[in-house]
Design a protein around this nucleic acid. Sequence first.
DNA 1: TTGATTTGACCTAA
DNA 2: TTAGGTCAAATCAA
Length: 193
Amino acid sequence: MCTDDGLEGSVDDGHSWRKYGQKDILGAKFPRSYYRCTYRKAEKCLATKQVQRTDANPTVFDITYKGEHTCNHHARLAEPPLPEKHEINTTHHQQLSRPNPGEMLSNLRANLAVNTSDFGATDPYSFSFPLEPFGIIEDYQQLHLPNDFDDELLQVYSPPLISPGTSDSNCYTDWDSSPSLNFTVYLDHDFKF
DNA sequence: TTGATTTGACCTAA
DNA sequence: TTAGGTCAAATCAA
């Protein structure tokens, strides 16, 4: 994650990652970093993620998760019954209570700001703003975002936490080809951790 | 001393 | 052949 002073660190998504490579990508100003789960060997956890700073905005990172954690070291999470993979279960959305603002605020400060504006370009989409730092990959599917989620989030948390100006965020899953998740993290220039 | 990061080399798919 | 992804030795930091 990049801060105002240009320092880069890993987004605390509740997992322990170990960097294993960095590559200059053709046409990209900034290199892409490759991370794998710290417990890859110990627990044969094959989860990986790629982090790349976007050209347009150096404070924005595209983070792509691949695979899923099989280790037991992910952050503790509220554990409602998991919807079957590849299935968007709207029932769960109704059963799960939305995080209260205090919890979300503390988690935002502790972890990251996620710009969820302009969702809806792809359907179905799903993304859960976690009660706790991000956990196993399935957790992203536990909540279906309502259409007005971004508006509500912005009303509650901005300014100064979330930049409302950008509109080119993306959040999609491509479960058919590979179990990966890509989302863009926007950091407000005034964001303080 | 141990675990994490860096970085050039290597592998592989397109 | 090239670009993206991974490996692994060297280096760094706690």
